[in-house]
Design a protein around this nucleic acid. Structure first.
Lengths: 138, 138
DNA sequence: CTTCCTGCAAAGCATTTGCATCCAT
DNA sequence: ATGGATGCAAATGCTTTGCAGGAAG
């Protein structure tokens, strides 16, 4: 099961304010990647006093720095966030319906090891984005 | 040898204006990825009447749509362009010096075929970005 | 000629920041 | 109490667009 909001905040070394708890709570509840703006909209939609947009941005930035959430750029000029699972995965983006499908099995480790050895790189992370047309859109 | 500026413009179905010729010429001459702004700066640095920034943006956008240049997002919020070679390759970005190294050997085709079969995707393209610390920065 | 381009400046977005106030710890 | 957080609005930075004059085919 997934971690609670306060746990994630603690892991990032951030104070547990009601705003941040709301933000992380919403993010945990969200199965897809979301932009800061989308997250902000959802918080407002829940009614009550939602955190300001600036706070959403600040919080997401901190969480990403702490490695608690992943920041991805599916489209240029817009960052998408999602809670880091323990699972390593990549994404397939349908160029027609823009649906993002998670790809679980990553098979590039052997390649990376080889590159590290050959170029002397210390490869700390990698991102793979596939694009194409999904089954439903064909 | 690489193609001339006018050839690339023709391939994209764009009129060969002096501005566009200058832009593509500069892009062909450039071994690294450049942003629209960098390209604009270089053109101005050459003296004479350089194309306006808006024209640089418009031209790069058209060329990217036509598949003549690649648009990449190494950092979020900024597009980098480069002329498409015939070669398929990916990038390694050093998180310390931000140097971008081209990785020539792509070994994910088998994986992609498998995914296509399993999910029913029509995978038309993919992007791999590696990050880490380069040999010089260690 | 007609359609497409260009330059310039203004507009648009996503994101960041300044600053006074406020709240966890 | 006190350093970190928040909200709001203004500021930024990259990119796009509207429009009137110009040039390519």
């Amino acid at each position: 099961m997934s971690e609670g909001a306060s746990t994630l905040l603690a892991a990032a070394g951030l104070r547990a304010t009601p705003q941040r708890t709301a933000i992380v709570g919403e993010l945990v509840r969200e199965p897809n990647d979301v932009t800061a703006q989308e997250l902000h909209d959802r918080l407002r939609a829940r009614g009550g006093s939602a955190p300001g947009l600036a706070t959403v941005y600040r919080t997401l930035t901190r969480l990403a720095e702490a490695g608690v959430v992943d920041a991805l750029t599916h489209h240029a000029g817009e960052l998408c966030y999602r809670v880091c699972g323990d699972d390593h995965h990549h994404h397939f983006v349908c160029s027609r319906c823009h649906r993002v499908v998670e790809i679980g099995d990553c098979r590039i480790d052997a390649w990376l090891d080889d590159l590290a050895g050959r170029h002397g790189f210390d490869v700390t992370g990698h991102r793979v984005e596939l694009e194409g047309v999904c089954a439903g859109c064909r």
